[in-house]
Design a protein around this nucleic acid. Structure first.
Lengths: 367, 367
DNA sequence: CTGACTTACTAAATCGATTTACTACGACTT
DNA sequence: AAGTCGTAGTAAATCGATTTAGTAAGTCAG
């Protein structure tokens, strides 16, 4: 009777019922009272703590059964507060749209969920204020770690962190990077074998973290193959539109320069698609007149007409690797020697946007 | 001196330093001790609680200044525990890849961040086990609300919920839906005006929540325009690949049936792109031989060659609306009358994949 | 000079777990 | 008979806020 009164009072004191029917889930204390045991005992048993070794199996069974029966779920927030682990990561991305980020997120998600982790996302759109603010927000939310995708770090952070396609050397941050030398070799080697030596290049936007490194690899590979990189055949993407527009614009610029080329290596698939459109509008067919190689191998590369020859980045795998690395560092705090970077291998995917060089419109006009 | 000892002991007692340098952020208690005030006072002042009206401005200023100076940040988890608000939503999606989900997520993100909320995502890939499990996991994490995107609900949930493109009638769930009647009118009207009356249809996968509703709207619109819907010109997408493969396969089936058509209305842009490829491989050009209309207007629709004529869903807006609706329901618990559904308007985007009907290869062979 | 108000705060309870440091009690050893 | 174990637990502190229910001191009216 006394207890009933107490219960009534509790309901009355908190008339917040979120929804018509949810009578707020059972707490550990309630479960303990129901069993006539202390919360301590339940906690030890339910968490299979070593200290529970002295509890007889019979009692354990009773506890498990009651927990199941009353549908007991430990209060996640309370547990987080006590253990100082949120089982949540922060993921920082330029934006969600587009194949690249989505693929990486997919990989991250896969690994995290199977480890009982979730992640929160923030899109910084390369805005430098947001680049500073979001990591702070993440830390305020007590994330256990941070993954940044194609994102420049502004400050050091105090939790384990991994950067996908990051190239900065920051203490405590592991970079997941593609073997860009290999990628450049594959792409240029492919074009070279097809007989191309007048090759145009579309570099990435300045804010893209791969831009610089990839360009260096391309220069190296070109040198090895004795391919000349002509400044007049080199343009860079501008603007942060996630559409194929920047690639289109860059290619128009290339065409205006009137220096001729039989092949084009674009910074990514999306810009390659824009490039093909620009070429077509100038009466140039891909691959007959100009071969085009993309980068990333996002879904759209395969959809495209013609199917895009491209360098595949194992984006999903990179996401998985990132997640795995952060999780490891969270577990073994500071034990492991912490690799500065982990590298993954690119793959050449040959589709229909590249073909053997023929004496075509563009070239005949210069030679 | 005594205090120094106490501090030393505390550090010694907790030798868990996560990272080489992070001396764990200041807590409210520490800040209070530093100021010679009680945590209560600080809490009242910092949260601008009405009860703080009796605190003189001078004291308030001291508190704010100290908070800034010591870089005090309230412990998010502790606050969540006390207030029973996690300021986090759960978002349930089929998968992250592809334009559709990404766009909606973008809209959700935008609204949430500006309200101080974050979200956690889970991809169910239409797996019915996951469809049951993830909402449970969300609730276990004490999300304040749930948004489902193109997802069927299995159970009722005990927090405010919104379904983007959901059509089930579930108590407490608000559906954000496109005006499909209008969409069908726009698409068929457009084709009709171009002279098409032999129109093929690719229906959605059975698990897609829009499939049924949209099909009914199409039938209605066809009837109004006196367009015949021939079973032999109707196929449905199969399999859950997020690529254009299902659209390609469906179109091949359509072509095999040998019944002729001059236009095709696909369930979404991705399948429309697959359809165009299948048509081309059969020697049929788009739009000269067959006009194709897609649905959604994802990025890839504009990239495609030819640019895809399509029905745009305001996906980003739908995401924003979903977020806004959940947030409202969280604030005004149960006050508002809770609309069963909120509808948004489609838009016809005419690009290059549709053209006036001409006596083409397909039609001449039947007539 | 008492009671009511205002001002400026604070002690303690609470949210719901985890974890440390005990307590009984019986059995067994020496 | 005293001391040592092992068994079966429990009380209380803790994580870091928020919030309720005060208190103590001063002011003012009547």
């Amino acid at each position: 009777m006394c207890e009933t009164a107490a219960v009534a009072k509790r309901n009355e004191g908190a008339p917040r019922k979120k929804h018509s029917d949810s009578p707020r889930p059972v707490s550990l204390r309630q479960l303990a009272e129901h069993l006539g045991l202390s919360p301590t005992t339940l906690s030890l048993v339910l968490n299979d703590s070593p200290a529970a070794s002295s509890i007889p199996q019979g009692t354990k069974d009773r506890i498990f059964e009651a927990a199941r029966g009353l549908n007991y779920r430990p209060h996640f927030v309370a547990r987080s507060l006590r253990t100082q682990r949120s089982h949540t990561l922060g993921v920082l991305v330029p934006e969600i749209s587009g194949g690249y980020t989505a693929e990486v997120l997919g990989g991250i998600e896969e690994r995290l969920l199977q480890a009982g982790y979730f992640y929160i996302v923030a899109c910084h759109r390369h805005d430098s204020d947001l680049l500073e603010e979001y990591p702070r927000l993440f830390l305020e939310r007590r994330v256990d770690g941070i993954i940044a995708v194609d994102t420049r770090w502004v400050d050091r952070v105090s939790v384990p962190a991994v950067s996908v396609s990051g190239h900065q050397d920051i203490e405590g941050v592991t970079n997941i990077i593609l073997n860009h030398d290999k990628a450049a070799q594959l792409a240029l080697g492919h074009l070279f074998e097809l007989g191309h030596c007048r090759i145009a290049f579309i570099k990435g936007q300045v804010f893209s973290s791969d831009t610089q490194v990839r360009w260096e690899s391309i220069q190296q590979a070109a040198q090895n193959l004795q391919i000349e990189i002509r400044p007049s055949l080199t343009v860079e993407l501008e603007g942060d539109s996630p559409s194929s527009e920047p690639g289109y614009v860059a290619t128009r610029k290339l065409l205006e320069s009137r220096d001729r080329f039989t092949a084009l290596f674009a910074f990514n698939d999306i810009s390659a698609i824009g490039a093909i459109r620009a070429l077509r509008e100038s009466g140039l067919n891909t691959p007959d007149d100009v071969s085009v190689v993309g980068f990333d191998d996002v879904d759209a590369a395969a959809f495209n007409n013609p199917g895009l020859t491209t360098i595949r980045q194992p984006l999903r795998q990179m996401g998985q690797l990132a997640a795995e690395t952060v999780l490891n560092r969270i577990d073994s705090r500071q034990q492991a020697p912490l690799p500065k970077s982990i590298s993954v291998e690119p793959e050449l995917i040959v589709r229909r946007s590249t073909a053997r060089r023929r004496p075509g419109k563009l070239e005949s006009s210069t030679r």
